[in-house]
Amino acid sequence: MPSSEAIVSLQGVTKVYGSGETAVTALHDVSLEAGSGEVVLVMGPSGSGKTTLLTIAGALLKPTRGTVQLCGLNVTEMSETRLASIRREKVGFIYQNFNLLEALTAFENVRLVASNGALDREALRNRSMGLLDTLGLGHRLNALPKQLSDGEKQRVAIARALAKDPALMLADEPTANLDAKRGHDVMELLRQKALEMDKAVVIVSHDYRIRDIADRVVWLEDGRLRTEL
């Protein structure tokens, strides 16, 4: 069950790209929260502002107006260095294109992101191997991304996102490059892990088939949150 405490909270967030006549408003006065153990699915058509919403929630992009809180910290006015630190400690990303580092093995991709200084070398190794193992990749530790299937890559990406033990996990179109069954299986795995590890999860997608894995589904269109489905 989701807890009531918000891990991420967007209040009245507006994002405008450019200025003057060329200004484009990607988000209009959007408010959204996600708590520990909660999976929120943001759906909407292409160009609706989903990725902008995700990057603002992940402290990668600053809103033009409104406030963003992560684990109770107002990140709206933080410096880039501080935001990088927040992302490193509190946010795990899962990308549409997996975005694994091609020169690193599955294990190294996970270990690199886990190496935030909190764990010693041995603990780091055990944690990385443990995560990959629980995601069914114990036998693929030394495989390079090019040797992995798309489903395996996405599971490595989930392990990487979990590796730093973040409070918030953000997934951008995580099933876009997977077939229906594999996409659903991977999302089910993500949900299971998020619940086990008490993470808040925000997924942006236009894949209607994964709506059943979410605790809450919201619809974003033309930069506005229309409805809660």
């Binding site: 990668l60 990088a84 490193r88 400690e89």
Partner: peptide, 8 residues
């Protein structure tokens, strides 16, 4: 990607 993950 590394920047997004919080690497300085």
């Amino acid at each position: 990607i590394l920047k997004a993950e919080g690497f300085t």
